[in-house]
Amino acid sequence: MMGAGALLLLGFVCLCSSAVTAEEEASEAYATPAFCRHYECPKYKTVKQYETFEKRLYEQSRWVTTQLELDFFGLGIYKSFRRLFDYINGQNSEGITIKMAVPVRIYVPLINPSDKNATMSFFVPSTLSTPPQPLRADVYLENIPPMYVYVKSFGGFAVKSDFEKKSKFLSEELNGLRLPFDDTFGAAAAYNDPLTLFNRHNEVWYNAL
């Protein structure tokens, strides 16, 4: 089950698309999924479509990440988001602004979880060939190798309990089908700002083994 405090973010996170881009043109060879709208998102292909979820193969990707401290009031969520947003708005080694991409991703450990070992990440657009280094010690870049992921998607204005429920359903489905997956952590992804009223897209992830 996802961490309660962290997933609260995913119902109201603002994607702040006003950031100015300092990037190269994107490749036209890849058809961006409709749910990403006008944002860039990680490239993947669907390996297998199940009845209620899918298995994706993601290409190598880069993320900018910071620790997420879970708390009842959501102050940790705001602080983590602010640190990452400051990075894309010029608080980096090059002083450049970077266009917002999607999703905003949260990883929550499921084995020995605590209120201080979750993380929040922004996807770094692939069109930025060399991302600038963060200026803060508590913000860092991650290179994620290609990976297989089980993904359950759902719509609507999702709140904490929705993400927890979908994550639980996905793990039960994977266990029922005897599909091996990493149950030591779960992930949730937000793709929309609060002003998007229709065709909203939310996801929960488990890494396939």
Rank of each mutant, 00 (worst) to 15 (best):
S17Q: 11
F85L: 09
G156R: 05
E28P: 05
Q67C: 05
A189W: 03
D183N: 12
K43R: 15
Y44H: 10
F185K: 14
A19L: 11
L135R: 08
R62E: 13
C16E: 12
V64P: 00
N89H: 10
K48R: 14
E142Q: 07
P134T: 01
A189K: 01
G74E: 03
P42Y: 04
D182M: 08
S27Q: 06
T184Y: 00
L141G: 00
P134I: 00
G76Y: 08
E25G: 08
S80E: 05
K166N: 13
D193Q: 07
L7E: 14
A137Q: 14
E164Q: 12
K165Q: 11
Y191A: 12
G11I: 05
H201P: 09
E173A: 05
C36N: 12
I96Q: 06
N207F: 14
Y191N: 09
F81G: 15
T130P: 01
E28M: 11
E24A: 12
N92E: 09
T119C: 02
S17T: 11
Y87T: 06
S161N: 13
L195K: 13
K168R: 10
L197E: 06
E25L: 12
G76H: 08
V102N: 06
N117E: 14
R200W: 10
Y191P: 07
S167K: 06
V104A: 03
N117F: 13
D86W: 03
G176I: 08
K55T: 05
Q133W: 03
E173L: 09
V149P: 04
K168W: 07
V47S: 06
Y50T: 06
